[in-house]
Computed example of a mutant assay.
Amino acid sequence: MRLPILLAAMVTAFSTAMAKAHEFWLSPEDYTVARDGVMQVRLRVGSEMKGHVLSYLPQDIDRFEVIQSDGVRPVEGRMGDNPALVMDARQDGLAVVVHETNDAVATYDDFAEFQRFVAHKDFRTAVTDHTARGLRKTGFRETYRRHAKSLVAVGSGAGADRAVDMVIEIVALANPYTDDLTAGMPLLVLLDGVARPDAQLELFQTSPDGTVTITLHRTDADGLVTVPVLKGMEYLADSVNLRALPNDDVDVGPVWHSDWASLTFHTPD
């Protein structure tokens, strides 16, 4: 009995070490599933749409469910399941897969790592704020949480994405499987349930041959952004928020917290 426990501990340590400073996203085996088919979704962490697959670890998960027109179905996996989600596609229409992690902790032993992170994710005052708070530049901690969604077409794929009450989330305002996206995919970024203005959104486009194209976009005053999309591509949209925690003693506890939103979908040929 000790071997499974040891393996679970090793997987947990690996997933924690890999998760910070990389995107986390839901990766369906197929974004279009027959009405009587099976949805299979993997949890991925990495960069530029390449990375590691994480197993189902209940201690890391706060919320995992599939939302369709007939209601909400929780994902009830077993320790180590991979894919993490395997579920019968019972209901025709658009399925919104939702996954939220529990908080995890990252420790910065190199201030340059923190500087790269805040520059990449466009937190313009984070470095000066860190200094103004009197925080030392090594050995400080940040908690972080992932808020991921994916759109899967079951049968006709008809339906619409919706806000699902996460701290930060990206809502698709068009259905990529049924709507005309010639003018682009309209997205809404929400933070604490309200529109997030002037926020960076990073878009990853993966072509059938595996080529990844990355572009940066910004929401308008209403939290809206329309991103250009092409047919036959996989997309990951990513937006991150960083907050200062009410603690300025790095020896007492974490001093920053980040929330990461991701949304994946596919555009049919």
Rank of each mutant, 00 (worst) to 15 (best):
D70G: 01
L242H: 11
R116V: 10
A19C: 13
L57Q: 15
R145T: 06
L57I: 15
D238I: 11
G77M: 02
L6Q: 12
Q59M: 14
F114D: 03
L245I: 12
E113M: 13
T143N: 10
D249Q: 08
P254Y: 12
K121T: 15
A84K: 03
S15G: 12
D248I: 09
H52Q: 08
W256H: 11
R146Q: 04
D60P: 11
E48F: 10
V240W: 12
T267N: 04
G139Q: 06
L190Y: 01
A9Y: 05
F24M: 11
H99L: 11
L6P: 05
N82A: 10
T211C: 01
H257G: 14
T267S: 05
H130I: 06
L230T: 11
H99R: 09
E202D: 04
A89E: 04
T16Q: 15
M233Y: 09
V66P: 07
L151R: 02
V33L: 02
T12S: 15
D209N: 14
V105Y: 09
V229K: 10
E29W: 05
L173I: 03
M18W: 13
H52G: 02
D222T: 04
M79E: 12
A34H: 07
A221H: 07
A9Q: 14
G139P: 00
G37Y: 00
M166D: 00
L94A: 01
A158C: 07
L151H: 02
F265T: 01
L187H: 02
G159E: 02
P4F: 09
P197R: 00
A244R: 15
Q91C: 06
A13P: 09
A17L: 09
D248E: 11
W260A: 00
G77E: 05
E100M: 09
G155V: 09
K231D: 14
K149V: 01
T182D: 05
L242F: 08
W256P: 04
Y144G: 03
S207A: 10
V75N: 01
M18H: 12
T213A: 06
S47N: 14
D129N: 15
R42M: 05
G139Y: 03
H147K: 01
Y56K: 09
E169P: 00
L7R: 15
K20N: 14
L173V: 05
A21C: 05
S150G: 04
H22L: 06
G139C: 00
S156C: 06
T219C: 00
A13K: 10
L191M: 08
D129I: 14
L263F: 10
V252G: 00
T32K: 10
S27L: 13
M39I: 13
E48Q: 14
F123V: 05
V194G: 01
S262W: 03
A153Y: 08
R196W: 07
R196P: 02
A106K: 12
I5R: 15
L135R: 07
D222P: 04
E65C: 12
E142I: 07
F14I: 15
G51W: 04
S258P: 06
V118K: 05
R42H: 13
G210D: 07
T213M: 07
D62M: 07
R162L: 03
V154G: 03
S15H: 15
A119L: 07
A244V: 14
V75D: 02
D269H: 08
L151S: 02
G51Q: 03
L85A: 02
F140L: 03
M10N: 14
